[in-house]
Computed example of a mutant assay.
Amino acid sequence: MRSYRNSLFWLNLMYVPALLLFLLFIVYPFLQGVRISFTNWDGFSQDYSWIGFDNYKRLFTDENIGLVVKNTFIYGFGSTLLQNVIGLLYAILLNQNIKTRGLTRSIVYLPVIVSPLIMGYIWYFFFQYRGGALNDVIMLFMDQPVDLLANSSLNVWIITLVNTYQYLGVAMIVYLAGLQSISKDYYEASSIDGATAWQNFFRITLPLLAPSITINVVLNLIGGLQLFDVITALTKGGPGFASQSLSTLMYKSYFGSQDAGYAATLGNLMFVIIMIVSVFSLAFLRRREIQA
């Protein structure tokens, strides 16, 4: 009886509430989404029919899906690259013993606490065609304003930059924590050997930041691939499908076209893409940690 009480049985029961919440709010909605993708449900009516794989056939024959997936990858990988490069540079700079570094860290991190939708609207007033701050400057040198958000070759990158700006502080904080965990003994030993600053960075700093790089890359990829709020605020996915992502197209299909079955199919595609990208990137970066 005593051994039973001292066993891990009661400790393992502590997982049950978390497991139930996971099943209720994650697994069950996912399974419901899979089920709905095989129907023609409009999202509101009580009546719907099973249509088999028709939604998936429609998905792979949709002439716009290639552009939408391409945009989704640009948002994911573009934001990840910029956030990690700029975030690391900020972290290295603000890890130095300089004045006002605490204030500067707060300023860089401040956009993170703002709602992504609000952040998108703030930048909309900066880029908008008439009365936008950027066009006010452009009008000093040109006769006509430039509609940057309607430019299909630029608006995707503008959205990527705005998303990068907002979540740059998260990458910076993670890298700062990683830099502060590196012992100064490594740099003292390298200085005795006459190593340069670049050699210190590539031979000491970067390898020892491998766990921080893994965290930032995976989180940034997941966040970028499901980007929604900033796109909605800046372009609403337009013009046409020029800046649509899978998440905004899913929203448009559900609420705009009342096509919940196809929206669920798009959601399943987005889930598969995010799962594959995150699992493979995590496995690759973990392997690099071990090698480092």
Rank of each mutant, 00 (worst) to 15 (best):
D47V: 15
L82Q: 06
S152C: 09
I51R: 02
G43H: 12
N55P: 13
N97T: 14
S115G: 03
K99F: 13
A150S: 10
R58K: 06
L154H: 08
G66F: 13
D136Y: 15
V146P: 00
L149N: 02
N155M: 04
N151K: 00
N163W: 08
V146C: 03
T100G: 10
F126C: 10
F126S: 07
M139A: 14
Y129D: 05
L67S: 10
Q144Y: 09
L149T: 04
W50I: 01
T72I: 09
F53H: 05
N163Y: 10
Q83C: 14
D54H: 06
I118A: 07
K57S: 02
L94N: 04
S115L: 11
L59H: 02
D42Q: 01
I138E: 15
D42E: 03
D143A: 11
R105H: 01
L67I: 11
P116D: 03
D147S: 01
D147L: 04
V69R: 12
I86V: 00
F126Q: 04
I92F: 12
N84A: 03
N155Q: 00
L93C: 13
V156Y: 09
R58N: 06
M119V: 07
V108W: 02
T39K: 00
T80V: 14
A133Y: 15
W41C: 09
T100E: 03
Q128S: 13
T100W: 11
R101K: 09
L82F: 14
F141C: 14
L103N: 10
L67E: 08
T72V: 08
V69D: 07
S106H: 01
N163D: 06
V69Y: 12
A91E: 02
K57I: 07
Y165C: 04
P116H: 08
S153T: 07
S115I: 05
T61I: 12
Y165T: 01
M119P: 01
D62R: 00
Q128H: 13
I107M: 06
K57L: 05
L82C: 12
L140F: 15
L93Y: 13
N163R: 05
Q128V: 14
T164P: 13
T160S: 09
W157G: 03
